[in-house]
C-alpha cells in the first residue's frame, strides 16, 4: 500500500491525520457549504451584509417554497426527468446490442466501427450543433423533449458502446462458444447468456448517463426554448436573471437542481465509481 499506512506511524502523526481530514474536507466543500447555508438564510441577513456569519434565523422553508412558488423550477425539474430517464433507457439498451456485436464477433470492419464510436464520443458539441438543430427542425422535434432525447440517445451510445464492448470482452468467451456448439441462436445467446451477466455494467452506465444528461447545459440551451421543455440547467440560467442578487433564492434553486444526481450518486455509489474508473486499472 502506498503511501505508508498511517497506523504504522507515530501516534501524534495519526492524530494529526485524523484532525486534518475534516478540516481539508470543509475547505474542499466550502463553496457547497456556503451555498447550503445561504439557501436557509433570511433575506434580511443578506441585506444587512451578513453573508457568512451565523444566520439570524432559519428561513429554509420560506426560501425553498418561494423558489417553487414564483419560478418555473418545478416544471424545469420535471422536464429534466422527462429528458433524462428515456435517454438512460434507450442509450443503455442500444449500447448493450452494439457492445455485444463489437465484443463477440470478429469481422473485418469491427475495429473501424468501434473507433468511430470512440472518436465521435470525444468531438466538441459545436461541430454538431447547427446540423442537429436543423435536422430537429425538419423532423418537427425542435423545442421538444423528444428532440433532446433523440440527440442524447445517439450521442451517449458512443460512450456506452465503448463501455459495454470492453465489459463484454472481459467475460469468459467459452460460454458463448459452448452455446454455439449446442446450436443456440445468436440472439438467444445475447438474451439468455450474455445480458444477465451485464447487470453490473448496465447499472454503472445508467447512473453515469443519468448524471451526464441531467447536468447537460449546452443542448438544453440550444434545443429548448420554452419553459415547458427547458431542463433545469437551462432554467437555472433564467432564474439567475430573474433573481439577480437574491442569493438566498439562487442558492435554494441550485440545491434543488443539484439534488437528483447527488441522490443518485449516493444511492449507487459503487456502480458510479466502477463506471467512471473503467480502464483506470488495466490496459
Amino acid at each position: 500500500m502506498f503511501p505508508k499506512p498511517i497506523e504504522k506511524s507515530a501516534p501524534w502523526v495519526q492524530t494529526a491525520y485524523k484532525l486534518t481530514l475534516p478540516i481539508a474536507l470543509i475547505l474542499w466543500l466550502l463553496p457547497l457549504i456556503g451555498i447550503a447555508m445561504t439557501s436557509v438564510r433570511p433575506a434580511a441577513d443578506l441585506a444587512a451584509g451578513n453573508y457568512f456569519g451565523m444566520p439570524s434565523g432559519f428561513a429554509g422553508v420560506e426560501n425553498y417554497s418561494a423558489v417553487f412558488k414564483n419560478s418555473n423550477i418545478g416544471y424545469y425539474i420535471l422536464n429534466s426527468f422527462k429528458v433524462t430517464l428515456p435517454t438512460v433507457f434507450f442509450a443503455v439498451g442500444l449500447s448493450c446490442l452494439s457492445g455485444f456485436a463489437l465484443a463477440i464477433y470478429k469481422f473485418k470492419s469491427n475495429l473501424i466501427v468501434f473507433f468511430m464510436f470512440v472518436a465521435g464520443n470525444f468531438v466538441p458539441f459545436q461541430i454538431l450543433a447547427i446540423p442537429v438543430r436543423d435536422l430537429s427542425v425538419q423532423l418537427g422535434l425542435y423545442n421538444t423533449t423528444m428532440g433532446l432525447v433523440m440527440f442524447h440517445v445517439a450521442f451517449q451510445t458512443g460512450f456506452c458502446t465503448l463501455f459495454m464492448r470492453n465489459f463484454i470482452k472481459s467475460l469468459p468467451f467459452a460460454l458463448v462458444e459452448s452455446a454455439r456448439v449446442e446450436g443456440v441462436s445468436e440472439f438467444k445467446i445475447f438474451w439468455h447468456i450474455v445480458l444477465p451477466l451485464m447487470r453490473p455494467a448496465i447499472a454503472a452506465l445508467s447512473v453515469l448517463v443519468f448524471t451526464f444528461i441531467w447536468n447537460d447545459y449546452f443542448w438544453a440551451t440550444v434545443m429548448a426554448q420554452d419553459a415547458s421543455v427547458k431542463p433545469v440547467t437551462a432554467g437555472m440560467n433564467e432564474l439567475k436573471g430573474q433573481y439577480k442578487v437574491a442569493w438566498e433564492l439562487i442558492s435554494a434553486a441550485s440545491i434543488i437542481a443539484a439534488l437528483p444526481p447527488v441522490a443518485m450518486f449516493f444511492l449507487m455509489q459503487k456502480h458510479f465509481i466502477a463506471g467512471l474508473t473503467l480502464g483506470a486499472t488495466k490496459g
Binding site: S98, V113, F117, G120, L128, P131, L135, V153, A154, T161
Partner: peptide, 17 residues
C-alpha cells in the same frame, strides 16, 4: 445488433460533422 445504435450515431453525430 449494431444497426439501431449505429444508425442513430451516424445520423446525429457522424453526418452532422
Amino acid at each position: 445488433f449494431l444497426a439501431p445504435g449505429m444508425i442513430m450515431f451516424l445520423v446525429y453525430v457522424i453526418f452532422p460533422i
